[in-house]
Design a protein around this nucleic acid. Structure first.
Length: 287
DNA sequence: TGCCCCCTGCAG
DNA sequence: CTGCAGGGGGCA
């Protein structure tokens, strides 16, 4: 589900809600969603919330230094409810089930000493919460293999050029989707970035001109920044911490726009299956 | 480096 | 009713 901008939106929400809060109770409603001993988080306070790619990292501190790794995968949601903060009153319908919290897709519930509650919902149950020792966080295989943060200073044009050169025979689509190359892009932002760069998803990484590379680099970063500004892309299940939807999809050029006119040239957007994903292009603009 | 799979709900 | 959905691990 959520890609980098959605996860970053949730991270920023968590920073303003759960930092400093002490966990007084944990309910795990579906065992496979929580790895580790939930008892260990009782009495611990949230110290920091960071993000690596699409993975959230909540540092908590009680008797020991622990971290909660949270991956939302396709349909995961984090929802915050507070009786003292009107904007988080909760109880309102939450897509896709449109029933109040907790609901059928609620899998884990964190209750804080203040009475505030954090719900982890996941309709398709692909997501997970994993409790690990703080010192072992970066020994996790996912974090060992994940690529550069595309909005970090480390992701320079030069770095991007080098990365493309290292994998010259991949399609642009599978390259951008590969978390081991660049962390955080998923299907929506990949399709939008390729449109913005006027590059076709099936083009090979090794076939780009210097100006193509620059276009794709700029497009990748700008589409992610815009996604964060608009609080992410809500199609069905993604919502922000207070249950509201992101607005990125309101003016996408190609994603899920098949049959509609390209905003640049008017050619009808087409959709086909590629790299295992629905892929949307303007065949006129993207070469 | 591709393909299948983990799940459930909903559009077509 | 079948196919599809924004992710990524494991497999050949």
């Amino acid at each position: 589900m959520p890609e980098l901008p959605e996860v970053e939106t949730i991270r920023l929400g968590l920073l303003s809600t759960v930092i400093g809060q002490r966990i007084s109770r944990v309910d795990v409603l579906l065992g496979k969603m929580f790895t580790g001993d939930p008892e260990r988080v009782l009495g611990a306070s949230v110290r920091d919330v960071s993000r690596r790619g699409k993975l959230l990292i909540l540092d908590i501190e009680g008797d020991s230094f622990l971290s909660l790794l949270i991956h939302l995968k396709m349909t995961g949601q984090l929802l915050f409810k507070s009786l003292t903060r009107p904007e988080f009153a909760g109880g309102h319908p939450v897509p896709p089930l449109n029933t109040p919290l907790p609901n059928k897709s609620t899998k884990v519930i964190f209750t804080f000493e203040s009475g505030d509650i954090l719900y982890f919902n996941d309709l398709r149950t692909f997501g997970y919460i994993k409790l690990v020792e703080r010192e072992n966080v970066f020994k996790e295989r996912f974090l060992q293999t994940i690529g550069v943060e595309p909005l970090s200073d480390a992701f320079t044009l030069e770095y991007f050029k080098g990365l493309l050169k290292k994998y010259p025979k991949m399609s642009l689509k599978s390259f951008l989707l590969d978390q081991r190359k660049i962390a955080g892009l998923g299907n929506i932002y990949t399709d939008e970035a390729l449109f913005l760069a006027y590059l076709h998803p099936t083009r090979l990484t090794g076939s780009l001109s210097a100006s193509d590379v620059k276009s794709l680099y700029d497009a990748t970063r700008s589409v992610l920044q815009k996604g964060i500004q608009l609080h992410g892309a809500s199609k069905t299940s993604y919502v922000t911490l207070d249950g509201t939807q992101g607005t990125f999809l309101a003016d996408v050029a190609v994603y899920q726009q098949q049959g509609k006119p390209c905003p640049r040239c008017g050619t009808l957007i087409s959709k086909f299956s590629f790299a295992g994903r629905g892929t949307h292009v303007c065949v006129q603009c993207q070469k």
